[in-house]
Simulated assay, not measured.
Amino acid sequence: MSNALSPSPSRSWARAFGDLRAGYQQRELWAHLGWQDIKQRYRRSVLGPIWITISMAVTAIALGILYAGLFGNELEVQLPNILVGFIVWAFISGCVLEGADVFIANEGLIKQLPAPLSVHVYRLVWRQTLLFAHNLIVYAIMLVVFPQDLHWTDLTAIPAFLLLAVNGAWVALLLGIITTRYRDLTPITQSVVQLMFFLTPIVWIYDDILRNPDPAIAERARLAEFNPFLHFVEIIRTPMLGQDQHLRYWVVVLVITVVGWTLALVALRLFRSRVSYWV
């Protein structure tokens, strides 16, 4: 009887799942903090976070014109791929890069505010979701300039983004715990993300390389599928552009989701109580 009433040890699955549950229940807190993050960042700016959208659009248009010439594609094909790729990549890279510092950046709150660790993760993902919504302005303008052949089946972009957000949460949680203990991993993470940008079909079109008349090049191009970021980009970009969707991308993403959350929960179970000392 006494064992049943005794508190759970700090390293327990109950505490780990309880942290995630309690953090979600405080959604008014992290939703407000996430919105305030954006307001504070652009407090003296007239356009606010729209500057991020403008900057991304200008870069995407410039690269679209450049790579359309390099690959011999029509601008109405190359540019939409790059624009949507940039929008999706901005969310992914934001979750990874800011996730690596999610607890370090909130050192003051962690030490002073008795809140679950997951609050800071939810806050980060919510902030990136708001920025993603801002960037959809570019997507809406693109649909007017370059109309896409969209169908009802392309609404799978919605569950694809939800899956993206779920993965962003475990990445931020796992990376946040590890980099709080080992600070040298932060610049390494930044370098890896920068490298993966070029290895992921953001400015180049994967299917174009697969259709290369040289079978050797087409075969080597399939090595790109070992890049997990490719699958995350394609599950949402293809429906947003009305393109054919492939089941293998969804299967890979779902497997990564299960494995990633398993690792994140193990890390949360083992080190949740230590983060406040590490920061």
Rank of each mutant, 00 (worst) to 15 (best):
G18T: 12
L20F: 13
L20N: 04
R21D: 05
A22H: 14
A22G: 09
Y24Q: 08
Y24A: 14
Y24I: 05
Q25H: 14
Q25P: 06
Q25K: 11
Q25Y: 11
Q26Y: 08
E28A: 12
L29F: 15
L29H: 12
W30V: 01
A31W: 07
L33A: 04
G34D: 03
G34Y: 01
W35E: 02
W35K: 03
Q36Y: 06
D37H: 06
D37S: 10
D37R: 04
Q40N: 10
R41Y: 11
Y42H: 10
R43A: 13
R44A: 14
S45M: 07
V46N: 03
V46M: 13
V46E: 08
L47C: 10
I50G: 12
I50H: 15
I50R: 15
T53K: 10
I54Q: 10
M56R: 11
M56G: 13
A57C: 13
V58G: 04
V58L: 15
T59D: 05
T59L: 15
A60Y: 08
A60P: 03
A60D: 09
A60G: 10
I61C: 11
L63P: 03
G64E: 01
G64L: 07
G64Q: 06
I65W: 15
I65L: 13
I65D: 07
L66D: 01
L66C: 01
Y67K: 04
Y67E: 00
A68G: 13
A68P: 03
A68L: 11
G69D: 08
G69L: 11
G69E: 07
G69Y: 13
G69I: 00
G69M: 05
L70T: 00
L70I: 05
L70P: 01
L70Q: 04
F71A: 06
G72W: 13
G72N: 08
G72F: 12
N73Y: 10
N73M: 10
N73F: 11
L75R: 04
E76D: 12
V77G: 02
Q78K: 07
Q78C: 02
L79R: 01
L79I: 00
P80E: 01
P80K: 02
P80M: 01
P80Q: 00
I82H: 02
I82N: 04
L83K: 00
L83I: 03
L83H: 04
V84S: 03
V84D: 00
V84R: 04
G85M: 00
G85N: 01
F86Q: 02
V88D: 00
V88E: 00
V88G: 11
W89S: 00
A90D: 05
A90M: 02
F91Y: 07
F91P: 00
I92V: 10
S93D: 02
G94E: 05
C95V: 07
C95G: 05
V96N: 02
V96Q: 05
E98F: 15
G99H: 03
G99M: 03
G99Q: 04
A100C: 03
D101R: 15
V102E: 02
V102R: 05
F103Q: 07
F103C: 04
I104P: 09
I104F: 14
I104M: 14
N106A: 11
E107P: 06
G108V: 09
G108Q: 06
I110P: 08
I110S: 12
K111D: 12
K111F: 14
Q112L: 11
L113Q: 14
P114C: 14
P114Y: 13
A115D: 12
A115W: 15
P116T: 08
P116Y: 10
L117Q: 06
V119P: 14
H120D: 07
V121D: 12
V121R: 09
R123D: 09
R123A: 13
L124S: 10
